[in-house]
Amino acid sequence: MKKSLLAIALLAAAFGAAAPLTASAKDISLLNVSYDPTRELYQDFNAAFSKFWLAKTGDKVTVKGSHGGSGKQARAIIDGLDADVATLALAYDVDQLQEKGKLIPKDWQTRLPHNSSPYTSTIVLLVRKGNPKNIKDWDDLVKPGVSVITPNPKTSGGARWNYLAAWAYAQKHDGNDEAKTKEFIGKLFKNVPVLDTGARGSTTTFVERGIGDVLLAWENEAFLAQKELGVGKFEIVVPSLSILAEPPVTVVDKFAKKHGTEVVAKAYLEYLYTEEGQEIAAKNYYRPTLASVAKKYESQFPKVNLVKIDNDFGGWQVAQKKHFADGGTFDQIYQK
């Protein structure tokens, strides 16, 4: 008798406590599944967005993050990691969410400005202080005795941008002779002692474990390593030609609908395009797309001659098939 009374009292208390909560502010949880080097960016951005959303709607948003190699993360979402938003390294991985998982509509990339890429980046070369191997451009990477660190293009988005940037350079210098280009890339990968699965793993290999003479890195990752990890220990070398990397973002419709978070998820991504969002991106060394912020941070980013994935490689679908699918150029050169 006493026990049941207690239970009723407890239940009443629970309902009493729950009722006012549901009536006023909501506690919302968002999951952002992202690629490897965006940890610092989204830690800053999530805090800013929570503040913004609280002020706007009175709801408290907690954004949880998961980071890893872009391809691996896409795979996890397809396998059921229920991300509300996906912020990956390249469009092909987001395409997979559509093709393999049917989680987003086909036209996902047109839903937000700039091909759904709120910030861009490029690929640069990070060398040790004083540039002891005198690395100036891509062709210095194929010299014997130069040890190059890059992640695995099969799992890492950054690594695919690295690969294509090197390819674009070689292609231009070999006068479009594909056999020669392949030979160049083959020599380059002969100089790679470790293939980590994600960009962050490679940076750790290069910076912390001290392996390699040059790291092929996202510009943002190179800045981070140079300015925050080993001040004065590294130098950024801007190659004569690189690639415009556009990391796209999307709401994962199927999961967001299930969680009832479509509105917040959309607002979260749109906030990336606002001045505040762009400032945070620029501070984390991503190239902003908003003109006013881009101008403000102009001096921070070196001017690079950039090829585009859509113009020079026919888009990610074509590039992926040709280079990174099973039997693609990467397999051909790596198996030799």
Binding site: D79, G80, G101, K258
Partner: peptide, 18 residues
């Protein structure tokens, strides 16, 4: 989600992996 019982689980709001 693409596994043997994945869609069954998600329809019933049961999360196993992740």
């Amino acid at each position: 989600l693409q596994g043997w019982v994945g869609s069954l689980l998600i329809d019933n709001d049961i999360k196993v992996i992740f």
